[in-house]
Structures are given as structure tokens and as C-alpha cells.
Design a protein around this nucleic acid. Structure first.
Length: 168
DNA sequence: CAGGTGATTACG
DNA sequence: GTAATCACCTGC
């Protein structure tokens, strides 16, 4: 995925994501009522949902599934493949692998003003290569206190399984 | 390991 | 109104 924000282009190859559902998923921000914060989760697939976590971290999700049936994928980790200088300036430290949703949000330069935009006309774009499904495995989601047994965290085995042309 | 930080929610 | 809860990161 790639962002073009403040005149800077940053790309990451995804290595870790988590899925969140709608009303039937107690851990989801869409488990309760629709509010101004979580409204993008009801949007069409490809909508971006960005929220502020712990008052500090902007975390990014891509909405999936049908419109009005909330569901989203939280971006948890990725390898920086383009714009590493920009990422290191934003993060204030050397960065190769950004692991953790707050770090990813900061690396990509996202904030609340990007919530509700879409991958076809917003600052964040999706593009391949997407790798093979065999290189991913699933575990339980982390950092949550409800539905902790649902195995909807997906991780790439190891970054050497990524297409070598995408690695730095 | 603990603390920062602020929106959102649950309760009256 | 107030209090508790967070899909987290950093530095000790």
C-alpha cells in the first residue's frame, strides 16, 4: 500500500493485519452503535477508517465486505519499500520494519482527516504484488480484551517470503 | 515494567 | 456532569 501525503510518497509491503467484524464481533469498533468516529466502517469496501488510539496513535483500517455491513482490516505491520527517508523523519528513528498499528499510521503519515476517504480517490492506494496466501498464517488477535479467541490476526511467515523485488 | 494522552462510552 | 475503557508506543 502507498500513501501520498504532504508531497511525500511512502509504500509498505504488508506483513501483518487483523480483521474486525460488525455487530457480532465484540472486539470491533462497529460492535455498538454507529457514531461519527466509526461511521466509515459502514461504508463501501475500500473505505479508510482511521481512529485515534490511546489519545496518541492513528491506526488505519481498510473497510471490507458489503456497504452497510461493517467490517475492516487493521493494518498492523509492514516493510517499508519506498520513502524510507520520509518514514524515518516522521518516526524520528531508523525504520526498516514497522510493526504495530500506531507505528504504521505514523509511517504512512495518516491522521483523522483521512478517515472516510477511499483507496481509489484518497491519499492511500492499494497495489500489488500481494504475494501468495501460503505465506500467511493466522493467530488470535492481540491487544484486545473481548473475543480474544477469534483467530483473525494474519501474519507473513517471514519477510523473506515476500517477493524479493519489493524488499528494500 | 509503568506512564502518557484524549476521544468515546457508560452511567446518572 | 464524572469515571472507566481503550484494536498502543516508548523509555526506564
Amino acid at each position: 500500500m502507498t500513501t501520498h501525503i504532504d508531497g511525500h510518497r511512502v509504500s509498505i509491503q504488508l506483513t501483518e493485519v487483523e480483521a474486525y467484524g460488525g455487530n457480532s464481533d465484540p472486539a470491533s469498533h462497529a460492535s455498538g452503535s454507529r457514531t461519527s468516529r466509526n461511521a466509515p466502517m459502514w461504508g463501501p469496501p475500500g473505505t479508510l477508517y482511521v481512529y485515534l488510539s490511546y489519545g496518541i496513535h492513528w491506526c488505519a483500517n481498510i473497510v471490507v465486505g458489503r456497504e452497510n455491513e461493517p467490517g475492516a482490516v487493521l493494518i498492523r505491520g509492514g516493510v517499508v519499500t519506498e520513502g524510507r527517508g520520509t518514514v524515518e523523519r516522521r518516526r524520528g528513528r531508523p525504520v526498516h520494519l514497522a510493526d504495530g498499528p500506531g507505528k504504521i499510521g505514523q509511517a504512512l503519515g495518516l491522521n483523522g482527516s483521512d478517515s472516510g476517504t477511499t483507496v481509489w480517490d484518497g491519499p492511500l492506494a492499494l497495489r500489488g504484488p500481494f504475494g501468495s496466501v501460503e505465506s500467511w498464517y493466522s493467530t488470535v488477535r492481540i491487544g484486545i480484551s473481548k473475543a480474544i479467541d477469534v483467530p483473525w490476526r494474519f501474519v507473513v511467515e517471514d519477510s523473506s517470503a515476500l517477493p524479493s523485488s519489493t524488499l528494500p
